[in-house]
Design a protein around this nucleic acid. Sequence first.
RNA 1: GAUCCCGUAGCUCAGGUGGAUAGAGCGCAAGAUUCCUAAUCUUGAGGCCACAGGUUCAAAUCCUGUCGGGAUCACCA
Length: 583
Amino acid sequence: MNIFKDFQNNIKEIITKLSEEGTLERDLDLANITVEPPRDPSHGDVATNAAMVLAKQTKMKPRDIAEIIGVKIRALDSVSEVEIAGPGFINVRFCSSLIQKEVIAIIEAGLDYGRSTIGGGEMVNVEYVSVNPTGPLHVGHCRGAVFGDALSTLLDHVGFAVTREYYINDAGGQIDVLARSAYLRYLEALGEVIDEIPEGLYPGEYLIPVGNALAEKYGDKWKNKPESEWLIDIRDFATDKMMDLIREDLDVLGIHHDVFFSELSLHKNGDIQKGLERLEQKGLIYQGVLEPPKGKLPDDWEVRPQTLFKSTEFGDDVDRALKKSDGSWTYFAADVAYHSNKYDRGFKKQIDVWGADHGGYVKRVQSVLKALSDGNAELDVRLCQMVKLLRDGKPAKMSKRSGNFITLRDVVDEVGKDVVRFIMLTRKNDAALEFDFSRVSEQSKDNPVFYVQYAHARVHSVLKKAQAAFNNIDVSEASLIKAPLSLLNDESELMLLKTMINWPRIVQSAALAHEPHRISYYLFDLASQFHALWNKGNDRVDLRFIIEDNEQITLARLAMIKAFSIIIAAGLNLLGVEPLNEM
RNA sequence: GAUCCCGUAGCUCAGGUGGAUAGAGCGCAAGAUUCCUAAUCUUGAGGCCACAGGUUCAAAUCCUGUCGGGAUCACCA
């Protein structure tokens, strides 16, 4: 299935055999040997550093080892050329037939080309979005949402058992604020005049329908009643409504979670105590006093004994508090329970996707998982940096509290789901991202979404054109895999094919590194090779995809671009973007 | 003061867990449309990979330090 993987096995076999024969030493460590396509294509289709890695172990000169191994590699059927270069690289050129045949594999596998099982069915929990249920999603949330979603798809694609999870922060003080804000809207719905939303409450208009619904459900039951009577009912009601709102927003982006996990439930059923007990058994909890933070002190700083977790034993800077001064649990305490819960559900691989403003929080949560699992489980926290929203280069402001922030809905309505998703994945997560409305709606190369989509649409157009040109030529998949692929001989055609066969490697590396943006870059690159090939047909008529008096070569090329469009479509699918046939 | 992230072409950014002569887009300069969508393509100029040390056959990549930019910094979420 994967040419490079096969080839790597070939090389390792060769080395093992040589060492069994006594040509090379025994018990060689092959772990650091890589078999990869070199950056510079003039160095061949694949190169290995085997000779250099083995040089020290065997006390031989790298180039001498390379010669020995090279001879054996040359004998392989799939290889057309071997050359020893530089300090001892073995550069290999594949037979064209090997590359051409891959077109069949691609067409047969369809959108599953690139799928693999290296995850071995291992359970992975990806927690993302997890926005406080106090209002609609705004642009800033968008990035983490898309990132987490694409990463999940990617992991699923390489054989992990992925659970997509949303942690609902429905237990903190912000939820009471939500309840009070909703209460105000409730009074408003009952006919009271609310001039201005008081400072500290959520002013957003999205709470008006909540107030209406409350009025409808409860009538004037809560009117003129003290907060203690209505707080819990209204809180739960409003939280549910907000989650509905958030789910709708996510749906607009094509994002669907498997599990919505309530923080409040941890408080209610005693899971927090349970989580902490486990840390306590390991002797990691104590009563103590923290050093005041360096730099400028908070105004209300005071020395105070606290219940603390020894996160410093796991690399954190200071130990972390689990109880507030009023005796209630901290947010962190709930997180201890939450991550412990995930571990109990069998997730030894956990991924949390957070905003960069939570950077200071990473070590303590990782510490928890390390402590609970005795190092058996790992938590990777992917921090998504800020999105700078621009219009014609001018910044557009957004702030969650103000009520006049730019919502996710605003953005999706303006430029569409696919554009948002793709653009959010055009940077690695830990670099800041600029999102310029004017730029992403352009139909030009400036806009990578468009550029990639255009390549896909072009293929569709050629296939249609071909059918017209050759009366009833059969461009079905079954027909195309029988095309005479050996006719794909031009250098630029082989280049395109070589980039295509890299796809499974790209998927794997992107998944294992937790870096979905690699997919976007690959797709852009692949698309640009296609556009280049297309344009070559302007100068050289013999390179066009459709050669009217030569059905055989036309079929071969149609098979090639069909395979190409499959990879583009598969890639776009991974990103959650729909490939277009026409634009 | 501390922690985390970033520093690569004029601008915006890639660089596949250490590989060979550092890449792409925009912008700039010069070209290509009787022809499958020129919504594209071709060529060129443009670099002390922030700086200084270290690790090794090999460093933009790993380690240490310095400088610049961003985020965060007891009990908030």
